[in-house]
Structures are given as structure tokens and as C-alpha cells.
Simulated scan of single mutants.
Amino acid sequence: MPPKKVTVTADEALSRALQVLDAPAPDSSLLAEELRLLAGSYHTLLRKLHKTLIISDSYQHQLRQFNTTLTQRVEEETERRLAQERLLAQNAKMAAMGEMIDAIAHQWRQPLTTLDILVQNIREARRQNKLDDAYLNRATDRALSQILFMSETIAAFRKFFRPEKRKELFSVSARVIEAASLMNAQMRRDNITLAVVTQTEDDQTCGLPNEFAQVVVNLLTNARDAILELRRSQSAPGGDHRERDRITVQVSSGPDRILLEVCDNGAGIPAEAAPRLFEPDFSTKKKREGSGLGLYMSRLIIEQSMGGTITFSSSPGETVFRVEVPRGECREEAA
């Protein structure tokens, strides 16, 4: 009957060999057996190590392939997102431009009416032989004043849409007043009182002034739409709403932050819409030409471009949007 094969681990074989070597007079046959076991365990260990190296090489090759494809996927996804951001920004700009064109139409309506009346009066004065130099000078001065107002309106809107490349230091109050002036004609048309309260003169911040003004216009537009929505829901008559319908814009400052608050007493934001309010392509006024981009782009401008925050609180009859931006100088960096 052949001897039973004994299987020992490499550690066990090494321990036994050390015990034999430490003996005072080791038996040569016993030492040879221990060395044989140690050599067998060593070869077994080598075979396992070789297999481990092969598996490790395979894993490393797969990992390199995964890293290569992952980098490519990340680059493709980044480029796709950047392209989407550029498209959304362009769409938001076009939507804002539509609002501004409507505002220009309302700004120009009164001076155009005045010019029409002046021309008709001059013709009537000529027919009645009353067109003397004094009358003509007064009419000309009034006409030139109206034309200057229209020219300044166009200049303001051109400045609003002029692209900017670098951040600069600007006054938050000045931009708020400028944006409010662009919306005044529409507010008057809709019988909405627009009040701007500035509680500080030290409100310099760093950013793109035109983009910040666009944020203010977006917030004012949303506030106006909320008031009009409340009127529609209540079937309110088209009378004088000045005492009731009001938008208040307030600028204040702290030690290191500047706070802008836009408050309206409109319909409020539905609770189910609040979590998605800043998402792209989401709008609470989807059925009425809402693009869903105004608040999304406003958040990008305030948070990413200026390092600030934009939040809101809403209840039926009152909604407040709060924009906080850091006070301070501009660094030498591209916008």
C-alpha cells in the first residue's frame, strides 16, 4: 500500500524545516524530507503567484481600457452639457429680447403719440396762419425732446444686450434701477406699482453687469406675471389696481454680502412646482408662452458667475425672491 501523501502549506513546511535545522544533530533523511516538502510548497506558491500575476495583468488591462473609455465618455458628456448650456443661454436671451422689444413698444407709444399730435398741430397752425417762429420753435423743442427720449431708450436696451467678456465692479442699486426703468412702461400699462428701495450706497459687487440686470428683469417679469395670474384667477375687472397690485424691490447690505429682494403680492408659487422651479424647461406658466429658462439662467448667473445664491419663499398673496452676492473687488480673471 503506497504511503499516504501529506499536503502541507508553505508556512508549515518552512516552520518544520527550521525546527529540523535547529535540532542538535538533524537526521539527514528527515532533513531531506523536510526540504522536499519545502520545495514542493515553494513550487505550489510560485504557480499561484504566476496565476495571480496573469489575473492582475488582465485586470489592469481592463482597467486601462475602462479609464480610456471613461475619459472619452466624460469628455463627450461635458461637451454635450456645454452645448446644451449655450443653447439654453441663447434661448433665454431671445426670450428676454422678446420681453424687451415689448417694453420698447410701450416706451415709445407715448412719445410717438406726442409727435403725431405735434405734426398735426403744426399743419393746423399753418392752415390758420398761426405758424410763427415762436410756435414753430416750441413745437420743434418738444419734438426733439421726444426724439431724444426714444434715442435714450434704444441706447439703454442696446447696452442691456451688449455681450461682456470680463467681470467688472458695479453697483447693485444702479443696475436694479436701470432694470426697473426698462420695465416701468409695462408696469404702468398693467396698473402695477413698482417701488425700488435702496438702503445702502456701498453695494459694489463683481460680475457681469448686463447679466445681473437680466436677472432683475427676469424676477420683475415673473412678479408681474404672478399678479396678472391672480387677476385672472379672481376674474378681476380691469380697473385701477395700483393700491393692491405692487412689486417692491429692495437692496440692502451686510458686512460681506449684498441682498436684493423682489417681493410681489401675486398668485404665489404652487407647492408642487417649488422643488422644480429652477430647472431648465420648467415653467409654471407653460400654457402662456413660458419658456422655463428665466429662473434657470438666473441661477446660473448668480451662483456660477457671481458666487452668490438665489432663493425664494412663497405663500398665497406674497412671493419673495432673495438674491445674495458677495461684496468686494474683482480678481484678474476671465468671466
Rank of each mutant, 00 (worst) to 15 (best):
I104L: 14
R162I: 02
Q128N: 11
F160G: 01
K130G: 06
M100R: 13
E99Y: 08
Q72E: 15
N121E: 08
I104H: 08
Q120V: 03
A143K: 05
L115G: 01
Q84P: 03
M150A: 03
M150H: 03
K93M: 00
L169C: 09
Q72S: 15
I117C: 09
K165S: 10
N67L: 11
E75F: 14
R162K: 07
K130T: 06
Q62T: 11
S171P: 00
S145D: 12
N137P: 01
D116L: 06
T78D: 14
Q128C: 09
T113D: 14
Q84H: 04
A83W: 13
V74K: 14
N129S: 13
R138M: 08
R86I: 15
E77S: 08
H106L: 13
K167Q: 14
D132P: 08
S171G: 06
A83C: 09
L82S: 14
L131T: 01
P111V: 01
S145W: 05
L82P: 03
L70K: 11
Q90W: 11
T71F: 09
Q107L: 09
F170S: 03
R162S: 08
T113C: 05
Q84W: 11
R166A: 10
R158P: 00
L144K: 00
A83K: 15
F157Q: 10
I101Q: 10
Q120T: 06
F149M: 02
E85V: 09
A143M: 05
A139Y: 00
R142L: 13
Q65K: 15
I104A: 11
I117D: 07
S171Q: 02
L112K: 01
L148Y: 00
E99D: 09
R81I: 07
W108D: 04
E99C: 05
R166E: 09
E152Y: 01
